[in-house]
Design a protein around this nucleic acid. Structure first.
Lengths: 236, 236
DNA sequence: CAGTGGTCTAGACCACGGT
DNA sequence: CCGTGGTCTAGACCACTGA
């Protein structure tokens, strides 16, 4: 992105994440920022509102903008985050094992979950996520072949998102996640180190493009003791 | 709120939720909306961006704004939603049982979870949520007495949020939720209809004011088969 | 090409906080 | 009172869409 407001947002987001800007620090006023960056006030405000929305700062009318304690928000809050991004942030050794990779004809269930008809082929990818030698997550991904024509084991072992965004230049627009707890299936028991667990956390993820077609459906099945979901939300 | 952009937002949000504006309908162009509402384009855009952010519409450059299928997003997505609001939307008979209501001195754990020192008193409220005669959720709420001086059984049986916002005029600014699965405690087994369940879903909620103080900490402990969390997020 | 949304500007008025 | 952020305006230029 080559937007002025986005560059300003990024500069502050980075310095706050690094910790160079300490919590409770007061940012320069909007007027001062317009002068520093040579932009209009509305542009400054776009950047600050983004920071506020994403939990980086708190704006207080009549007082100013103050840095929030991002350390409290362990993960990046809000948005789609790939497994690779997460494990990098955690700093733990992680591993992805591709168990299945094939083109299939979508069954009735899949046709209701994503925008696929009988005649659309769908990539099915089954992967196991290991962190520190423990098999923790079972990811079952389904992609429309019409959007993602080629998939290789190599791509699946790395970040499929990186491939989709940086190689195919597909613009992901939004996603919907549904989190619930379900009985562990035989597949879960086969692929995961469940021990005595009888249930898993299931995250169903519907990923949509600009034209609102659901081009990806993913079921992430998590070992319960390793699952954690964090959610930051502004009120208004 | 008496903002122009907020009124426009609300008008569309309502008609979309009702279904009077069908999915895939094209909204009037931004130019047309400026004329219809007699406002500037940036004001129209503020309203439309809010609608987009909250999953009501999809904006496509060069084409226009289109109504999304809100029915897919069961609950109101993003934000703090009280139990009362949820059960109303579900249309099921619900009941709240206040099991405990007392002023306590916060222990070490509570002091780390919210902005309470040894000398601050804290309201402890323990409530059980029943939907259709099944005890499903155990809510343990803690409020700073300095923010919420009075709490009665009556208030707790209804919506504490309604009381806080409409009676005390406290401005909630943001919240952080942490969702995980934990072993059921004896308290869980005592208050909930767990059957053979050995675990519960725990939602820890940290609620902050404008000045960023965490004035409320809540632990919602859910029966696993009735738990569902939905999350809509834009990408950008 | 005309119409659309995305970004940006310069300036205005308001409501709030603290002095 | 001044400085702060919140709202709003009128107008500009750009990039994308579809005829």
């Amino acid at each position: 992105m080559n937007n002025k407001f986005y560059n300003i947002y990024n500069e502050f987001a980075k310095t706050i994440e690094e910790g160079s800007l300490k919590p409770n620090t007061k940012l320069p006023s909007e007027k001062e920022l317009t002068e520093k960056y040579n932009v209009s006030r509305e542009t400054v405000r776009k950047a600050l509102n983004l920071l506020s929305q994403n939990g980086y700062i708190q704006k207080i009318k009549g007082k100013g903008s103050f840095v929030l304690d991002v350390a409290k928000f362990d993960f990046p809050v809000t948005g789609i985050v790939s497994f690779k991004e997460i494990s990098q942030k955690l700093g733990k050794k992680s591993n992805t094992i591709v168990e299945e990779l094939e083109l299939i004809t979508p069954n009735a269930f899949l046709q209701t979950q994503m925008d696929a008809g009988e005649n659309d082929n769908v990539w099915k990818v089954v992967r196991v996520r290991e962190i520190g030698n423990e098999r923790i997550i079972l990811d079952k991904d389904f992609f429309l072949e019409s959007c993602v024509p080629n998939l290789t084991k190599d791509i699946c072992e790395n970040s499929i998102y990186e491939y989709i965004e940086n190689e195919l230049f597909i613009n992901i627009s939004f996603d919907k996640k549904v989190i619930s707890v379900e009985k562990a299936t035989n597949e879960d028991k086969k692929y995961l180190d469940l021990g005595d667990d009888t249930v898993v956390v299931v995250v169903k993820n519907y990923v949509s493009l600009n034209d609102t077609t659901v081009f990806q459906y993913t079921e992430s099945r998590h070992k319960i003791d390793k699952f954690k979901f964090i959610h930051f939300a502004r009120r208004n």
